[in-house]
Design a protein around this nucleic acid. Structure first.
Lengths: 235, 235
DNA sequence: TAGATTGTTAATCGATTAACAATC
DNA sequence: TAGATTGTTAATCGATTAACAATC
């Protein structure tokens, strides 16, 4: 890869994943601020202070969108909200299927908020005959045997996997075989997929480990140094 | 033995957060492998291949625990499981309270698996009179007004926050005031806490953004370069 | 033994943070 | 205007990856 040359397609930009994860936080905050109607503009310093993020970090992050601010004034709140919404693709809804109507699956079906994020769960699948045929939070539950056909027929690209460890890999294979291109995996195992399939792994065990290790460390080091701004990378 | 100077307290080591997040994955895999009883030993190469992680990364990660492997052979599977379990503190259970018995809160109360990870949710709180007094997945639901007293009386240090945006900050304040030291935050907003309080922020919107941006990019770049091993940092 | 694998030290890569000129 | 803030380029920091000697 040549260092100097301009990229062929300017649409393709490398965006750091941490940046992508912070953008929704800014968005949330901006909407709150907008409703308070105190000002039409906001600076990176204000956003950063509210979210315990360095202002320079906020500015860098906003830089990946095409947001333009005014020196001294900051960014137009309304404009920034619109730009982030657009950048994150929250304007064009994507359909998804959910596989596994257990506790967590049921909870996700009830997440009205997903629609704001451009995600629309249009059907759910399970193997349990008692669940099949029912409607949960407005979403109909089908037998898992119908997955393949329905994915193909509807051209669904996103699958949400909310099942236990044991069947996770098999169901992943079924989804991929049917034509699913991106899997949001809430099962406790890391599933294997072909190289062109995208998997986003949500692991509660990992998060809990980080939390409890931080807590343990805070206790053993308390009153030694002890400052925790919530941004620590190491524990 | 260190060349220059020994650290004052060898217990306090800086462990990268990514490493902490990967350790549970290794653990999951090791347990699966152990049940297959094919061998008593396993190498970093095997673990890495199974999880799409570079072997050298696995070795580095295992290095932070006190696991010792044998050249040519690898690590004892049983020993490694025990060491990770111990390192992550999954042997001594920590009690926690859950605040907000909505869809997600209910789902978390039903997560038997948490006990394996050393987390024991011993009570839940809500403001809804219909929920108060009921028992969900074996956990009793109290009125939020009792939180302060019960946290103090039981010496609870971990709070799980599963409420909507609006009341998240107020409830966080209440928890902190009562004596909670670590908050596992599933609300959609980043809550502000004093510097000595730990917050682990679980944000579905952020994860979804990463997933959908990867999907969008994969489509625009398909058949150009197109190799996705699931380990990409940038999208 | 030969060679796969560990453990450790060094190099690379990328995200964060700092510095600073431009600007309203 | 003066000074706060943006936008961009450079420096720093830390995690990942590579290199390689030690070893069973």
């Amino acid at each position: 890869m040549p260092k100097v040359e301009a990229p062929k397609d300017p649409v393709i930009k490398a965006i750091p994943e941490p940046t992508l994860r912070r953008l929704p936080l800014y968005y949330q905050y901006l909407k709150k601020i907008r409703d308070e109607k105190k000002s039409d503009f906001i600076s990176c310093t204000q956003i950063g202070n509210a979210l315990s993020i360095l202002p320079i970090q906020v500015r860098k992050d906003l830089g990946v969108t095409d947001a333009v601010g005014k020196p001294k004034l900051g960014y137009s709140i309304d404009e920034l909200i619109a730009i982030i919404e657009d950048f994150l693709g929250w304007n064009n809804t994507k359909d998804a299927y959910l596989v596994g109507v257990g506790h967590l699956g049921t909870a996700l079906l009830g997440f009205e908020r997903f629609k704001e994020y451009g995600l629309n769960i249009i059907a759910a699948f399970d193997i349990d005959r008692e669940k099949v045929g029912s409607t949960i939070h407005g979403v109909k539950v089908f037998h898992i045997g119908k997955l393949d056909n329905m994915v193909k027929r509807m051209g669904i690209k996103i699958g949400i996997l909310t099942v236990p460890s044991a069947p996770a890999q098999d169901l992943t294979n079924e989804m991929v075989h049917a034509g699913i291109e991106a899997i949001w995996n809430f099962s406790p195992v890391k599933v294997a997929v072909p190289p062109d399939i995208i998997v986003q792994h949500e692991n509660l065990a990992s998060s809990l480990v980080v939390l409890s290790k931080k807590l343990t460390l805070a206790r053993t080091t308390q009153s030694q140094d002890g400052v925790n701004n919530g941004n620590d990378k190491k524990i």
